[in-house]
Design a protein around this nucleic acid. Structure first.
Length: 254
DNA sequence: AACCCAATCAACCGCCCAAAT
DNA sequence: TATTTGGGCGGTTGATTGGGT
């Protein structure tokens, strides 16, 4: 079950070489409207403000709670957090965090997910199940607890070597329990009203007290996605969210 | 009204990485 | 295989806004 990313991907974007026709169109646009902006700047403007379904205005209480909770789990992975808040951009969430939520989080003495290891600690680890002998590194910088973050960036746990840095950071058994407990808590909070205490999936239970492999992280990632979707179903975050016919995606009504 | 200061937020920067050449 | 290009990311900056004096 995959969560639909909050973007305008209903229109499949073309990739590959530009056709002469497309070139002419682009030239015509630039000639007509003129725009001395870099592609990167245009992209940013589009992604953060102009694309369809961007939500403007204040964050709701539920959104705030979600950001705080996700930040506890994911750290400063703003794009990953934004992926779970339809209509919100990573930039917006990042700003919101720095200007407001960080204080709240600090006040509540929340322990940051990326603050489980001593300052400047570097972990070397072998990616399980991979055919490469490459060793990945994660470094933590010193500073205020809330400032610490995993170096590198990623938008999910399961792919690419970027994600393996997150895996390394999270590979203490201590952290595993924190993540599992959080998932359990969230499951309880979302479904216990109707179904009684929810059972943690077996594949999650057996991870307790274990260091996490990349595959384990995928399991947790999937479980966490499920948890978020439960909240959607319940309507606690986005009452307008509906599940599509196949039941595999959620769609927003704007 | 004028000034100062802190908060906010849009945009930029530099880096990483995958895809294209 | 090496190099280039461009998308995506988190960190940071700087202009703007608003409140206090």
């Amino acid at each position: 079950m995959m969560m639909r990313a909050p973007n305008s991907d209903q229109i499949p974007l073309k990739k590959g070489t530009w056709s002469p026709e497309e070139d002419h169109k682009l030239i015509a646009y630039i000639n007509r409207y003129g725009l001395s902006r870099s592609g990167k700047s245009c992209r940013l403007r589009w992604m953060n403000y102009l694309r369809p379904n961007i939500k403007r205005g204040n964050f709701t209480e539920k959104e705030e709670e979600t950001i705080i909770r996700l930040h506890e789990m994911l750290g400063n992975r703003w794009s990953a957090i934004a992926a779970r808040l339809p209509g919100r951009t990573d930039n917006e969430i990042k700003n919101y965090w720095h200007t407001r939520l960080r204080k709240i989080s600090k006040k509540n003495n929340v322990v940051h997910a990326t603050n489980k290891l001593p300052d400047n600690q570097t972990i070397n680890f072998q990616t399980e199940g991979s055919n490469t002998s490459e060793t990945d590194h994660v470094s933590f910088s010193a500073g205020a607890p809330e400032e610490k973050s995993i170096s590198g960036s990623s938008s999910g746990i399961s792919k690419s070597s970027k994600q393996t840095t997150a895996a390394a950071a999270n590979s203490s058994s201590n952290y595993t329990n924190v993540v599992i407990n959080d998932i359990h808590k969230s499951l309880q909070a979302t479904v216990e009203v109707d179904t009684g205490l929810p059972e943690l999936p077996r594949e999650v239970k057996i991870l307790r007290g274990q260091p996490l492999s990349t595959e384990d992280l995928e399991i947790l990632e999937n479980c966490y996605a499920m948890d978020t979707e439960l909240m959607w179903l319940e309507g606690s975050i986005y009452p307008d969210a509906v599940q599509n016919d196949s039941g595999s995606d959620f769609l927003m009504n704007f």
